[in-house]
Design a protein around this nucleic acid. Structure first.
Length: 616
RNA sequence: GCCGGCGUAGCUCAGUGGCCAGAGCAGCUGUUUUGUAAACAGCGGGUCGUGGGUUCGACUCCCUCCGCCGGCUCCA
């Protein structure tokens, strides 16, 4: 198994090398950076000085690569003492390779720290002193590379270049910007085709596309980038999910609070956010006072003010607040995209103020809530526990950290969640649990986190009176089930491909009249009223169009139930629901009484089920 | 913010340094009275993202800005 993966990686690595060979041929002045294998392919970073590679060049690049592959040139591995390799890099004006080699010579490792984990590749030799490095030659092209490579260029399977993008040298925004040419590579054409099909599937599910097709949200140039507006249909989605999250948390003892959207900046100076994230805050100027106000980028400091508004006893704790509200962050424009990254961020935010000995029980609570939430929306959940390491970069008492980390882990185990632990990944103010939700096509998304905070209670001087009358400091726990509702929706829309279950479907039932006769329209109208009385979201399509066309329109909107109304229904008082395919359970085309049908649907909405069963 | 690509009707997309810029769908009007994924006909609709420049002439070439897309960096 792992052999296979190693082979695949070697192959992709070799493909990167072959691509470099082709690039070098067309742009002899190319200066190469790193060219590793990725999850499904490879890339190479390259700097072409004054010119650039564009996707229009892919055809000739691919043709050249195919030529090299057909020639089946052997890959020759050349071991060189590191100084000779540096001389080679200098002779060939490979300034980036030279930099890497110098680092390698100095410290024994390189790149590793600067690049994302899976992107390490070119030459991390591991530890200790590096005496020599490897170069690989095929034909008359030589490249510095850790390898390994396949034996010869003929043994690389199927590939396709997919895009070209920008990337900073060594991931540092202060350094040169290079071009990163991405390709995908697989052992066979078949796998490559499957991959491309999967890409296409992901494209079909893209929430931006579905948001438009299903009429869920819009953007306007006049309003601004990263500021989505939700249509009536989209707002139903937001509100149903928010209500679910709120209900769930209220059941677990949270109380709703409300805080204003602007505040004096002193609040964030005290919390410490101003110095750290000040440039991401939107400023608001008062014309009446000299106050420097800001739009809130988070709710926790506000919530500490509610906590601190009266003296608290150990008997009062834990105190749990929830607020589903919108915060504003001035994200860099280049980072915005769809609903995934926005500047108006609606959070289902909550904060617990707890005693140290209550942490585990509270985390338990929150994990149970998260478990329930994600099981209802049918997404797999896995968690990552992030702990501190031994460095000094963390605030708060070390004993408190250790106790808290242990309690986190206990709670995760109690809730039988699949988890992994990462040391050194905690925030400076406390350990945390990140939730990774898996969507219908296998992608993982980080949505919610549970985050312990030892710092804000300190900075805000939060206290409670302990049993012995002394003052003690509570810990804060930040938690959101969805995280950002916008990001959550972007994930959920793609997860469900827009086929929303009844409880969130903006339109649950559509009635189609077969003709325009008043008998038919009246009957539809009566059923419509009946459904509305049950709180169902229903619409009648009485337009003067063919039934086929109206069905098609309803299908495209992915409406769960479509009811055709004509002579038969009027006579029998029974309908044959057309059930959206993903919900149907082998009892299609059976007539059901109108009363029973509506009751069933209303029940499905209340119980938030996915599948439908009209008959018992 | 940085690198690259892009911006033509509500949507998806054609189009050429030069007469009045096109199609399908959607919309509107009429005909049709329709039975489970597209009836037929007609009509309306675009200062070709924005501001400037080059040119006898620009939707087409160049620059600014706005926005979108793919990455990078970032993500309390």
């Amino acid at each position: 198994m792992s052999d296979n993966r190693d082979n695949l990686e070697t192959m992709r690595h070799s493909l990167a090398h072959i691509m470099a060979t082709a690039i070098q041929k067309f742009w002899p002045q190319s200066k190469f950076g790193v060219g590793p294998a990725t999850e499904d392919g490879f890339y190479y970073d390259v700097n072409l000085d004054k010119t650039t590679i564009s996707e229009d060049d892919f055809e000739k690049l691919e043709a050249e690569m195919h030529k090299i592959i057909a020639a089946d040139q052997p890959f020759e591995r050349i071991e060189k003492p590191i100084d000779e390799a540096i001389a080679w890099a200098q002779d060939n004006k490979q300034i980036y390779k030279e930099e890497l080699l110098n680092d390698l010579k100095r410290s024994g490792t390189t790149v590793a720290k600067d690049l994302n984990r899976e992107e390490l590749g070119t030459i991390s030799q591991g530890d200790s002193k590096v005496e020599s490095v490897s170069l690989y030659r095929n034909g008359d092209f030589t490249d510095l590379c850790r390898g390994p490579h396949v034996e010869s260029t003929g043994k690389v399977g199927a590939f396709k270049l997919i895009r070209v993008a920008g990337a900073y040298w060594r991931g540092d925004a202060a350094k040169a910007q290079m071009q990163r040419v991405y390709g995908v590579g697989f052992e066979s054409d078949k796998e490559l085709r499957q991959y491309l099909v999967k890409l296409e599937e992901a494209k079909q599910r893209d929430h931006r596309r579905l948001g438009k097709e299903l009429g869920l949200f819009v953007f306007s140039d006049m309003v601004g980038s990263g500021l989505p507006m939700f249509t009536p249909r989209g707002t139903i989605l937001r509100e149903e999910f928010t209500r679910f999250s709120n209900d769930l948390r209220e059941r677990y003892g949270f109380k709703k609070v409300w805080t204003p959207h602007i505040t004096k900046k002193e609040l964030y100076e005290t919390s410490g956010h101003w110095s750290k994230f000040g440039d991401e805050l939107f400023l608001v100027k008062s014309q009446e006072t000299h106050d420097q106000l800001v739009l809130k980028p988070m709710n926790c400091p506000h919530h500490t003010r509610i906590y601190a508004a009266e003296p608290r006893s150990y008997r009062d704790l834990p105190i749990r607040y929830l607020e589903s509200t919108t915060v504003y962050r001035d994200e860099k424009t280049g980072e915005l995209g769809g609903l995934n990254r926005v500047r108006s961020i609606s959070m289902d935010d909550s904060h617990v103020f707890a005693r140290e000995d209550q942490i585990e029980a509270e985390i338990n609570n929150l994990l149970a809530a998260a478990n329930e939430f994600y099981s209802v929306i049918n997404m797999g959940l896995r968690v990552r526990l992030s702990y501190r390491d031994d460095s000094d970069g963390y605030l708060g008492d070390k004993k408190l950290w250790e106790s808290a980390q242990k309690q986190l882990k206990n709670a995760v185990e109690t809730n039988k969640l699949e988890f992994n632990e990462e040391t050194g990944e905690a925030a400076f103010y406390g350990p945390k649990i990140d939730f990774m939700a898996t969507d219908a096509i296998g992608r993982e998304h980080q949505l919610a986190t549970v985050q312990l905070d030892f710092v804000q209670p300190e900075r805000f001087g939060l206290e409670y009176v302990a049993e012995d009358g002394s003052k003690s400091r509570p810990v804060m726990i930040h938690c959101a089930l969805m995280g950002s509702i916008e990001r959550f929706l972007s994930v959920y829309i793609e997860h469900s491909a827009g086929r929303f279950p009844v409880w969130v479907a903006p339109e649950q039932i559509r009635l189609l009249s077969v003709n325009q006769e008043s008998k038919t329209l009246d009957f539809a109208e009566k059923m419509l009223e009946q459904a509305k009385k049950l709180g169902l979201r229903v619409r009648a399509d009485n337009t003067n169009e063919s039934v086929g066309k109206k069905i098609r329109a309803a299908e495209l909107m992915k409406i769960p139930y479509v009811i055709v109304i004509g002579e038969k229904e009027i006579a029998s008082h029974e309908v044959i629901p057309r059930i959206r395919k993903d919900m149907a359970v082998h009892e299609e085309d059976k007539p059901v009484g109108i009363e029973q049908f509506l009751k069933t649907v209303s029940n499905e909405a209340k119980t938030r089920v996915h599948k439908t069963s009209m008959h018992g």
